[in-house]
Amino acid sequence: KLCLVCSDEASGCHYGVLTCGSCKVFFKRAVEGQHNYLCAGRNDCIIDKIRRKNCPACRYRKCLQAGMNLEARKTK
C-alpha cells in the first residue's frame, strides 16, 4: 500500500487517509503550527518520496486533496 500524498510505503490510516509516517507528521505540524506555506512555482510541484520536502505548500495542498483531516483521528 502506498501513501496517497507522496507514494512512499504507507504505514497506516492517519487523519482519515492512507499515508506514510512522514506525511502524517508533516500534516499534524502544518495544521497545529498554522503555517502559511507559499509555493515558489505554480502550485503544481511534484510530491513524491524524493521531492516531498521541496515544497511544503504543494505537499500540504496534496494532503488536503487526499482528504486528511485532524479531526478524523478523534472519531475513530
Rank of each mutant, 00 (worst) to 15 (best):
P56E: 13
E9I: 10
L70M: 15
D48L: 03
C63L: 01
T19A: 10
R59E: 02
L38W: 06
A10K: 03
G12M: 08
I50S: 13
A57T: 02
V31T: 11
A66N: 11
R59W: 13
A66F: 09
K49H: 09
K74E: 15
K1N: 06
A66R: 05
R52I: 07
L38S: 10
N54T: 12
C55M: 00
Q34F: 04
G41V: 09
L4Y: 10
H35E: 15
C39R: 00
D48W: 03
N69Q: 08
K1R: 05
F27D: 00
C39G: 01
K49Y: 07
C45V: 02
K1C: 05
C39V: 00
D48Y: 05
S11R: 09
L70D: 10
V31N: 06
F27M: 05
C39M: 00
K76E: 15
K28C: 06
C23Y: 02
T75D: 14
K1D: 12
E71A: 05
G12L: 05
Y37F: 13
C13W: 09
R59I: 02
Y60C: 02
N43G: 10
I50A: 12
Q65M: 08
E9G: 13
R51F: 15
K76S: 15
F27H: 01
V25I: 14
L70H: 13
L38F: 13
K28G: 09
L70A: 08
F26V: 01
D8C: 06
L38N: 14
I47Y: 06
K76G: 13
E71L: 06
H14I: 05
K28D: 08
V5C: 01
L4A: 06
S7F: 09
K28Q: 13
R59D: 02
A57D: 05
A66Y: 11
F27I: 04
G41N: 14
T19R: 00
Y60K: 11
G12V: 05
I46S: 13
A66G: 06
E9M: 14
G41P: 00
D8G: 06
K74P: 09
R73G: 11
C55F: 00
R61S: 12
L70Q: 11
L38Q: 11
H14T: 05
L38H: 14
N69E: 11
C3T: 01
L2G: 11
L64P: 02
V17N: 05
K62A: 11
L38V: 15
D44R: 07
K24H: 10
V25F: 12
R51K: 11
A10W: 02
G67V: 02
G33W: 05
C6M: 00
I46M: 12
C55V: 01
